[in-house]
Structures are given as structure tokens and as C-alpha cells.
Design a protein around this nucleic acid. Structure first.
Lengths: 109, 109
DNA sequence: TCTAAATATACCGCGCTTAGAATATGCCTG
DNA sequence: CAGGCATATTCTAAGCGCGGTATATTTAGA
């Protein structure tokens, strides 16, 4: 599949990143999130909507409230994507010299 | 330290994500990146500037050209950040019931 | 059924980011 | 040192995303 832009841009917003980190310690209601972030409730609802659209959270209605809970899937996809870079930084394999030689070889044509 | 917003927003742009994935297979010059992405050279330079500012790439001048090479640091930081969520999705530990009980207990006050 | 509380949606205005085009800079070669 | 190539920077206009405010919706309780 490859890494999704929606996943990254969801986290690229400070308040949303903060929400995700809050939910790491357990589910929370909209009001609680708003309180802890010092944010107005509508903004929180909108951010949660974005997070929900790309699978970061799921909702559990309970009477008046709506309990939001983190979903592992997008985080796992990020982890898989990062895995594809691991070889690069573990083998301290510096292809720069190879590349330079290859460049200069091409230049002679 | 925590996860940096700059790192995430750098990757949240489709062309920049594409550049990072291109560089996964080895260093490239600006011109080559522009060609493979079908992008104009100035935009590529600008994207590389952003990636450079948050430590994603380093430059190696070689005569006329500038060779860009991926740096592992930001990717490692992302990996560390994700590590802090691993417990959540490995222990299939669903705190939702606990949380509900706790909520209703608070309501009685 | 009326009210209050919790949450979601709609609308508006602004600031940031991007692409595009023009221009500047740096480096090699004849 | 003049000219050409690779790259960086600047400027501008347009689009998107965010916060703020007002409003709609749902649910519990009197």
C-alpha cells in the first residue's frame, strides 16, 4: 500500500498530535479532551472528525457523551513504512562514493 | 523531547514524501529528482530545503551538482515515538469498560 | 414536554503553504 | 573571462486548513 498522506497530515497538526498522545493513556470524552488541551469544544470535535476519517480513533456513544478511543491500525502502518528504511540506517552503508563514480562515468558520454 | 511537528508536516506533503522514498534507494541530484517526479526544478529545491531544515537530508556538493542523501535521525525519532504506542496495540488491553465504570462513578457526585 | 448538557455541523475570515515564473548564484570549460 | 549548466532564491497569486462563533442535534431529567 505505502504510506498514506492522510495519516501524516492528520498528525502534522499540533492539537491533533496532542489528542493522539492523550488517548495513548486511555479513552476520553470530547469534553475532557477540550479541557486538557485548553481548546474550544467545536475545534476538538472537528479534529476528532479528521482523526476518525483516517482511522485513528473510534467512537463509543454513552448517553450524552461520546467516548473516543485510539485505534492501532494507522500507527502500525507507519511502523511498517519506517521498517522499509531500517536497512538503510542499520547497515551503515554509505552509497555516496559509488554514486559519485557512477555520476562521473555518465558524464563521459 | 517528543515527536516534532516539523518532521510530520515535512512528510505530509505528497512530493516531499515521494522524495524521501526515492532517496531510500540511494543519493540523487536535484535534477534527477525533478525528472523522476515530473516536477519543475525550483519546486524540488524548495522541498529539499524544507527536508534539509528538519534534518531529513544532507547535501554533498560535487562540481555543478548537489547530491542529496537521506539522514536516519528523523526517521529514528518517529520510530521511537511509535514505540511508545506499541504496548497499547500488543497487549490487546481494552480499557473501555474500566473507563465507563469510572465515568459513571464520577456522575454520582 | 421543556430545559439543560454534551456534542456535531455550518459559516466566515485569515494565515500559511504551494506552484509557477523570473531571477540570482555558483561552478566548470573553452 | 565569457558562456552555459545546475541549483537556489524571490515574488506573486491561489487554495487549503484552522480558529471563532453561531446553530443544530441528541439525550437525560424535572
Amino acid at each position: 500500500m505505502g504510506m498514506k498522506i492522510t495519516t501524516l497530515s492528520a498528525l502534522a497538526e499540533p492539537n491533533r498530535l496532542h489528542i493522539v498522545e492523550l488517548l495513548r493513556d486511555g479513552p476520553l470524552t470530547v469534553g475532557e479532551i477540550a479541557e486538557r488541551l485548553g481548546l474550544a469544544q467545536p475545534q476538538v470535535s472537528k479534529h476528532l472528525r479528521v482523526l476518525s476519517d483516517c482511522g485513528f480513533v473510534e467512537v463509543h456513544p454513552s448517553a450524552n457523551r461520546r467516548i473516543y478511543k485510539l485505534r492501532p491500525q494507522p500507527l502500525m502502518e507507519m511502523s511498517d513504512w519506517l521498517e522499509s528504511f531500517r536497512r538503510m540506517w542499520e547497515e551503515r552503508f554509505d552509497r555516496l562514493d559509488d554514486y559519485l563514480a557512477q555520476l562521473q562515468k555518465k558524464d563521459k558520454e
